[in-house]
Write a protein that binds this DNA or RNA. Structure first.
Length: 921
RNA sequence: GCAGGGGUGGCAGAGCCUGGAAAAUGCGCGGGGCUUAGGACCCCGUGGCCUAGCGCCUACGCAGGUUCAAAUCCUGCCCCCUGCACCA
């Protein structure tokens, strides 16, 4: 057994590719493909999951290269944003949790980790790590064009982009609501909150009830139920305040006054106990006087801390009144009905009683609320008030507008599912940020043009196009600056940095010229420079022409690759911004997205501790095995599963193949070589489409697993294997997946140069021999049947007789396939003067599946295939196999004088086309 | 709530657009081969029943419908997953 040194083999080919500058394409005349994948954010080493997108892009790039295209696949590093800053800070502080992740999951020695306290050092460390990994796995990347998004050259480019966007009116300024920690004075996102709660902002309506010298302000999600208000709830145990908003006095909870003051300026005048308010009365917008009652379920931290009570439609309100024994005096007022509600019934009462909710503190009260809200939101029709007859959701808006118009309501933003707490312990609130800059993805014209361009793009998988459309539709203003972090200074407002998702929308254009700007003074990269190079505007200097040519040659992006999660942000931005900046001929042609990689069936995550670093995987299994394993397990959209057993299986097959290379010295043209060529040719014809559509699953199947099956059958059937032709074709078609191993095979069978530079083998339909393949299938199925029978009778046969049906059965079979009726068959029998009983029996047998009869070989070929395989079958079955024609038996049987021939058996007449009769002895 | 997607064998996952074979392929499991042994590799099996295979029954979330024929088309219902932004 030859031992295969995978590491050595791969290093050897990487070395040779490097020496040959295999991945440094130059702009020129010929046809090109420009392929990019979303660049990495270097705040950790990459794991096998990251490898999926890049491997997919790499396979695609390598495929086009085989098809004779000049292919550019570049890479850079995205260092914009705050996480790296935060990480550096935590390292400086000696954060034990982080240091432990570095040590145990990333495998970074503690001393090293402790030295990475500067953001730049951190970025450099991880980007080197990632770059090394990408080299080891054999990506066809042109590293000359590498850059970082904090490079000054790149900053100039992004600033140019923003000036273009501003000139078009797409960069706007306004106010913006954010989740805010009043204690830290900082924007809060999910990973800043206790329990990683997503601080979701939603709108509530605040309705003003006349109270004393001002307003008791109740917050509600259901303003349309105002017509059914019977009372107000205030928590007697909480502190309330009287606060002035301008001239108006608001009575709300103390916490609310503090949290909401960031949205509506308020000055607290006096503090009041909730208990003091309870017992009073307030006047609803329609003039009705309602009492203020005590309720402990009121959370002072939510909304205004004042709740309006609608017992007919809110189970909590109904239960609270019932608990207080006040249902008698405060009668629920039904404001809407919905399908399924009994006439005259009170919705909240109905739900509460049906679900047997004992009181307001029971958990079932929540379920009741949800159920009722759902029913009313879907099917609710207003039955009283100004909007009688209108659907509940529409009425909600109308009531809101009406009350606002009367000065009796206003809207506020609050955190949903609240209260939410910051890591520091303070309650998170909503703040309105003034002077926030936006990219106006809500702009109608821009949106329309973006959608139109999307329509012209190729989207893979096609099914995700809907997601793009939905996202483009729903995008509004996107905040595009932030106060801190690495990146590009915002050109119109000092001290602001362009936000990470906004500085990475057209950066692919920068790849085309990055290597030419390395030595340039960033100050020379002026507005005029980029105008000339990227848009062809102005005269341009002589030395800029080369740069312009490079851009013109490579742009547009032919295929953009990323994980599917970017469909909700980066990818639409990518289209939007290209549409805004570039003319049609330079806008992107195609996007391909993929799912994630799971580890042994589980999501890969730090907390599970099941992250497999890419470089570690490469050391264990070899680059080609890892490449194949991360992309071949599932189709593009699906999450794929990295399983060690699968990786080992692939590895084992490669070793097996390696041991077969000795057979690759010669060619042959026997029956089995023809069969193998037929199978392979069929593949060669089908593969280009699969590659172009990135049907990864089918590709993996075709290029690897099925090829292995063919090969095994061939080895079993061929006396002395001759695999030169086979290996030559296979090395080429598998090289996008497994470039290193493919080179080894290619060289071993006498291929010239690198296989990665070879031409994609053309499939020759003349080599496809359908009959030959069917013949082999027949042989295989006969073997299977014999084994099945032997097993059933529990004895090994000494001799096996195989009967190919008499010739007329083939004609009859095809007749049945075509006409699908017995009548025509009987007609055929009469004409041919056949034994009508046999014909009838034959026909009835086929009738049941007449609509799905498979294609069969002609009589002669069927006999030929089996006759030819008799030796093989004998060997496989360990018994002599004799192939006969049905008529031989019939003859022997009917000539009464002769004794019945050996192996003669009435079963012989059961022979059907495609299913020869088998007799065991 | 809004938007998008999905429910097939022990598991993962094809097939469903373009209706027509217990249902690709891989993993797992059982048996055999090869090996000093293990791993890897190779072969066979893996819903149930069976008058020797070519056969029958039962399956594709649930319930109906269209059709000679439905996992595949139509209708209703149940359940599950993902995203909702300033964050890489």
């Amino acid at each position: 057994m030859i031992f295969m040194d995978m590491q050595g083999l791969e290093a050897k080919w990487r070395g040779r590719w490097g020496k040959g500058k295999a991945y440094e394409p130059e702009a020129g005349e010929g046809k090109k493909k420009f392929i990019t994948a979303a660049f990495p954010y270097p705040n950790s080493p990459q794991h096998v999951g990251h490898g999926r997108t890049y491997t997919t892009a790499d396979i695609y790039a390598r495929y086009w290269r085989l098809r004779g295209y000049n292919v550019l696949f570049p890479m850079a590093f995205h260092v914009t944003g705050t996480p790296i800053l935060g990480m550096a800070k935590r390292l400086e502080e000696g954060d034990e949790e982080l240091l432990s992740i570095f040590e145990n999951i990333y495998g970074i020695p503690r001393e090293k980790a402790e030295s990475l306290t500067q953001p730049e050092a951190l970025v450099l460390y991880f980007s080197r790590e990632i770059e090394e990994g990408m080299k080891e796995i054999g990506y066809a990347i042109d590293w000359r064009r590498k850059f970082y998004t904090f490079d000054r050259h790149f900053n100039k480019f992004v600033q140019w982009q923003f000036r273009k966007l501003k000139a078009k009116g797409y960069v706007v300024k306004g106010t913006h609501r954010v989740a805010w920690c009043p204690s830290d004075s900082n924007v809060v996102s999910a990973h800043d909150t206790q329990g990683d709660v997503d601080p979701e902002i939603e709108e509530v309506t605040c309705i003003k009830f006349k109270y004393k010298d001002g307003w008791l302000v109740a917050s509600t999600y259901r303003p349309e139920t105002i017509y059914g208000v019977t009372n107000i709830w205030v928590n007697p145990a909480e502190k309330y305040v009287k606060a002035f908003h301008g001239e108006e006095a608001y009575y709300i909870s103390k916490t609310a006054a503090r949290l909401l003051s960031l949205q509506i300026p308020m000055e607290v005048a006096e503090e009041i106990e909730g208990a003091e308010i309870v017992g009073g009365a307030a006047e609803a917008p329609d003039g009705r006087k309602v009492p203020i009652l005590s309720a402990e379920f009121v959370d002072a931290r939510l909304g205004t801390g004042v709740v309006m009570s609608v017992p007919a439609h809110a189970p909590y309100d109904y239960l609270a009144l019932r608990d207080l024994g006040k249902l008698g005096e405060l009668k629920p007022v039904v404001v809407m009905t919905y399908p399924g509600l009994k006439p005259g019934a009170i919705p909240a009462q109905e739900v509460v009683e049906r679900m047997k909710v004992p009181d307001q503190n029971d958990a079932k009260a929540e379920d009741a609320t949800k159920e009722l809200y759902k029913a009313e939101a879907h099917g609710g029709i207003m039955s009283i008030g100004d909007f009688k007859g209108i659907g509940a959701l529409a009425a909600k808006e109308k009531v809101k507008d009406k009350l606002a118009g009367e000065g009796r309501a206003f809207n506020l933003f609050v955190l949903a599912k609240g209260p939410v707490f910051c890591r520091c312990g303070a309650q998170v609130c909503v703040k309105l940020v003034e002077d926030q800059w936006f990219l106006d993805y809500g702009d109608g014209e821009w949106k329309a043009e973006t959608k139109e361009w999307l329509g012209k793009m190729c989207i893979m998988p096609e099914g995700s196009r809907k997601d793009y459309l939905a996202t483009i539709d729903w995008l509004r203003e996107k905040a595009c600056t932030r106060a801190s972090g690495l990146g590009t200074p915002f050109p119109f407002d000092k001290g602001k940095i362009i936000e990470p998702l906004s500085d990475s929308t057209i950066y692919m254009a920068f790849y085309t010229i990055a290597h030419l700007l390395k030595d340039a003074d960033p100050e020379e990269l002026t507005e005029e420079f980029f105008d000339y190079v990227l848009l062809g505007k102005g005269k341009g200097r002589k030395e800029w022409e080369k740069v312009r040519e490079e851009f013109l040659y490579w742009y547009p992006v032919d295929s953009r690759h990323s994980a599917g999660d970017l469909i909700r942000n980066h990818l639409p931005f990518f289209i939007f911004n290209h549409v805004a900046i570039f003319p049609e001929k330079h806008r992107p042609c195609q996007i391909a997205t993929n799912g994630f990689v799971m580890m042994e069936g589980k999501k890969m995550s730090k907390s599970f501790g099941n992250i497999l670093p890419l470089r570690k995987a490469i050391r264990e299994y070899g680059a080609d095995v890892v490449r194949f394993s991360v992309v071949a397990g599932a189709d593009l959209t699906q999450d794929t599963n990295f399983e060690r057993s699968v990786a080992e299986g692939v590895r084992g097959r490669l070793e097996h193949l390696y041991s077969l290379l000795d057979y690759g010295k010669e060619d042959g043209d026997g029956r089995m070589e023809k069969w193998l060529k037929s199978r392979m040719s069929r593949r060669l014809i089908a593969l280009p489409e699969l590659y172009e559509k990135l049907e990864m699953r089918a590709l993996a199947q075709n290029v690897f697993y099925e090829v292995m099956h063919d090969l095994q059958w061939y080895l079993k059937r061929a006396d002395s294997p001759k695999l030169k032709w086979f290996f030559q074709k296979w090395a080429a078609i598998v090289s996008p997946f497994m470039p290193h191993f493919a080179e080894e095979v290619w060289e071993s069978v006498g291929g010239k140069g690198f296989v990665i530079d070879a031409a994609f083998p053309k499939g020759d339909s003349k080599l496809v021999d359908y009959g030959l393949e069917m013949g082999e299938e027949l042989v295989s199925s006969v073997r299977y049947d014999v084994e099945k029978i032997a097993e059933r009778i529990g004895a090994k046969p000494k001799k096996v007789f195989v009967y190919v049906p008499v010739a007329w059965k083939f004609d009859a079979y095809n007749l049945m396939r075509e006409r699908k009726n017995l009548k025509d068959l009987m007609e055929f029998g009469k004409k041919g003067k056949l034994d009508m009983e046999s014909v009838s029996r034959f026909g009835k047998g086929l009738m049941g599946k007449v609509h799905s009869l498979p294609d069969v070989l002609p009589s002669k070929e069927e006999y030929g295939a089996l006759h030819d395989a008799a030796g093989f079958l004998s060997k496989e079955l360990g018994a002599e196999v004799v192939v006969r024609k049905e008529e031989d038996y019939l003859k022997a049987d009917s000539s009464a004088g002769l004794k019945v021939m050996e192996g003669g058996h009435p079963k012989a007449s059961n022979a059907m086309p495609g299913k020869p009769a088998i007799v065991l002895e």
